[in-house]
Simulated assay, not measured.
Amino acid sequence: MEQENTQVQVIPADKAKIRKIWRVALILAVVTAVEFLIAFTVGAGAFRTWVFILLTIVKAFYIVAEFMHLGHEKKSLIWSILLPMMFVVFLIFILMYQGAALLEVLY
């Protein structure tokens, strides 16, 4: 019968990776803090809406690039995911715009 090796070997942490995770977490925290600041100080309007949309896109970029590891892939793979997503977002925008125009005509 063989004896099992029950020793655990501890590998030292990679300081560069930990620093990068903290940097991304800090960027996301700052963007979220700016969103909260704008939410409680700026009145409702188009400016506030566009700032929220822009900051949401920035946060989505960092989440996808770092936590889903898409930022380290080849550009062709990034564009093969990004381009169809942009078309779907454009389609949703156009459908909402046309739906609002149709509601104005009907009512």
Score class of each variant (00 low, 15 high):
residue 83 L to Y: 12
residue 19 R to T: 07
residue 37 L to A: 12
residue 76 S to G: 07
residue 79 W to M: 12
residue 28 L to W: 05
residue 35 E to Q: 11
residue 41 T to H: 03
residue 94 I to S: 09
residue 84 P to D: 08
residue 60 A to Q: 09
residue 76 S to H: 11
residue 45 G to T: 05
residue 74 K to L: 03
residue 13 A to T: 10
residue 106 L to F: 10
residue 4 E to W: 10
residue 81 I to L: 15
residue 37 L to K: 03
residue 9 Q to I: 15
residue 59 K to Q: 11
residue 31 V to K: 01
residue 8 V to K: 12
residue 107 Y to M: 08
residue 85 M to R: 05
residue 3 Q to H: 13
residue 14 D to S: 07
residue 104 E to F: 08
residue 26 L to W: 08
residue 28 L to P: 07
residue 32 T to C: 03
residue 22 W to Q: 09
residue 47 F to T: 06
residue 12 P to T: 01
residue 98 Q to T: 13
residue 92 I to K: 06
residue 98 Q to C: 07
residue 89 V to I: 15
residue 84 P to C: 09
residue 100 A to T: 09
residue 106 L to H: 09
residue 80 S to V: 01
residue 41 T to E: 03
residue 53 I to Y: 06
residue 104 E to A: 14
residue 46 A to L: 04
residue 65 A to R: 03
residue 28 L to A: 06
residue 67 F to P: 02
residue 43 G to Q: 12
residue 24 V to G: 00
residue 71 G to A: 08
residue 16 A to C: 00
residue 82 L to P: 02
residue 87 F to R: 02
residue 63 I to M: 12
residue 102 L to G: 07
residue 17 K to G: 15
residue 23 R to L: 09
residue 82 L to M: 13
residue 76 S to L: 05
residue 83 L to M: 14
residue 62 Y to E: 04
residue 1 M to V: 11
residue 106 L to Q: 15
residue 93 F to K: 06
residue 18 I to W: 04
residue 64 V to I: 13
residue 34 V to I: 14
residue 86 M to S: 10
residue 11 I to P: 01
residue 2 E to H: 13
residue 3 Q to E: 11
residue 74 K to C: 04
residue 25 A to K: 13
residue 20 K to Q: 13
residue 6 T to E: 12
residue 80 S to W: 09
residue 81 I to K: 14
residue 54 L to M: 01
residue 90 F to W: 08
residue 100 A to D: 13
residue 19 R to N: 10
residue 87 F to Y: 09
residue 54 L to S: 03
residue 2 E to T: 05
residue 87 F to I: 08
residue 76 S to I: 11
residue 12 P to A: 08
residue 101 A to K: 11
residue 9 Q to F: 15
residue 49 T to F: 13
residue 73 E to A: 07
residue 69 H to W: 04
residue 64 V to N: 07
residue 27 I to N: 01
residue 98 Q to F: 14
residue 11 I to Y: 10
residue 38 I to A: 06
residue 20 K to I: 02
residue 12 P to V: 00
residue 78 I to G: 02
residue 81 I to F: 11
residue 80 S to T: 06
residue 50 W to R: 00
residue 34 V to F: 04
residue 50 W to I: 01
residue 32 T to D: 14
residue 44 A to T: 11
residue 44 A to H: 02
residue 12 P to H: 02
residue 14 D to N: 15
residue 77 L to C: 00
residue 27 I to D: 03
residue 100 A to I: 13
residue 19 R to Q: 06
residue 20 K to E: 10
residue 4 E to T: 10
residue 4 E to M: 11
residue 26 L to K: 09
residue 22 W to T: 02
residue 50 W to F: 01
residue 60 A to K: 05
residue 62 Y to A: 00
residue 17 K to H: 07
residue 91 L to C: 01
residue 106 L to T: 14
residue 31 V to T: 06
residue 31 V to A: 12
residue 70 L to F: 09
residue 72 H to C: 02
residue 69 H to K: 08
residue 23 R to N: 06
residue 81 I to G: 07
residue 45 G to F: 09
residue 67 F to T: 01
residue 68 M to Y: 14
residue 88 V to K: 00
residue 15 K to C: 01
residue 32 T to L: 10
residue 66 E to C: 00
residue 83 L to V: 14
residue 46 A to K: 04
